[in-house]
């Protein structure tokens, strides 16, 4: 009997220790929905997250050894590429799209502006292999990591195996990215009763709920869907969004709805980074929506905002900035490894 109790107690301690570890790496407030990511298939551990973080900041992942994931996804910009409308890659290549911010990825089920990628684990394959981004291939990358002085021991610590595989490389990168949770904005403090909106922010919040929340749904500020938002086609890019993947006319000019959290750090905006200022974004929605058969039904009647409304709305949007996320040292360059 005593023996059984001891075993139970031991199991309980183990389980609690495990849960605490996961919780310290990944925590979401109770008003967040259930994550889409299945953590059971890739349970977070300190060692795997750390390995993923070292990989994320390592330019060894690119063919010329100069571009890392962080080159276009900087922690100080909420993991976007501020000031660059289109992504930059190896040999000074310019890509076709604006590098999106990375946070709250555990709630995303389709990745990239066109939804080309269906799971966070396999997302990294796209930039690693893209000739205008990192220009590598996964086999060559695994060889480079295997023959480096840094990685076999880090993989051993993380996966109990120093033989590096594509699967483990991708899962470690996914683990680090899963820990990029942004939920300490003023908005979050208000939700938790620890702070309150100013009068202007509150007016902006009401305008947001009436005009924006259908697609940029709180608390993640995206509905994780794809919509046509009435932007004119940039004829130097001819980017038709999701249509590139599905070849369906209903997906022409349809792009992923991005989150509105951390807008202060993630300019320029839109899939091609055409707007530098939030004011320009709001002017697009009030004045410049182009008619299109695929136009989001939420935009069919236009959005009507006075200039005072726009100022109030921007005041609310600024409550979605999360400086503690942007300056979180656990997400930054792990200099002790370089």
């Amino acid at each position: 009997m005593m023996k059984h109790l001891l075993i139970l107690l031991f199991a309980f301690v183990l389980l609690t220790a495990f849960n605490n570890e996961v919780q310290s790496l990944f925590h979401a407030p109770n008003y967040f929905p259930k994550p889409s990511y299945d953590f059971k298939k890739n349970p977070l551990t300190k060692e795997k997250v750390l390995l993923g973080r070292v990989l994320f900041f390592d330019p060894l992942l690119s063919i010329d050894g100069k571009v890392s994931c962080a080159s276009c996804h900087s922690p100080y910009n909420a993991f976007a590429h501020t000031d660059h409308s289109l992504s930059h890659g190896i040999f000074d290549s310019i890509g076709n799209r604006n590098a999106p911010a990375l946070f709250n990825l555990a709630w995303q089920h389709d990745f990239m502006w066109d939804g080309a990628i269906n799971h966070l684990d396999v997302q990294a394959l796209a930039p690693i292999s893209h000739p205008k981004e990192m220009g590598e291939n996964i086999n060559h990358l695994v060889e480079k990591l295997q023959s480096s002085s840094r990685y076999p021991s880090l993989f051993f610590k993380a996966f109990k195996d120093s033989a590096i595989t594509g699967e483990n490389l991708l899962k470690a990168l996914a683990q680090f990215q899963l820990t990029l949770v942004s939920n300490h904005s003023k908005y979050d403090e208000v939700r938790q009763g620890k702070n309150s909106f100013s009068e202007q922010e509150n007016k902006g919040y009401q305008l947001f709920l009436q005009n924006c929340n259908a697609c940029h749904t709180e608390p993640l500020f995206t509905n994780e869907q794809f919509e046509c938002n009435g932007l004119s086609v940039d004829t130097t890019l001819n980017d038709f969004g999701k249509n590139r993947i599905t070849h369906l006319s209903v997906d022409s000019l349809v792009f992923k709805v991005p989150s509105l959290r951390n807008l202060r750090y993630t300019f320029p905006y839109m899939h091609d980074g055409r707007f530098k200022k939030l004011g320009q974004v709001l002017n697009h929605y009030t004045n410049n929506i182009q008619p299109h058969p695929n136009l989001s039904k939420e935009l069919k009647n236009g959005i009507h905002l006075s200039s005072d409304d726009k100022a109030d709305l921007i005041a609310f949007l600024m409550t979605l900035n999360d400086s503690s996320f942007v300056f979180n040292t656990h997400h930054q360059f792990p200099k002790e490894f370089f």
Binding site: D38, K41, N42, N139, T165
Partner: peptide, 15 residues
């Protein structure tokens, strides 16, 4: 196809 990264014969390094 929609469940992430796998190892063995399904490892993405298999081309």
């Amino acid at each position: 196809n929609v469940s992430g990264a796998f190892g063995g014969d399904l490892d993405p390094t298999k081309g």
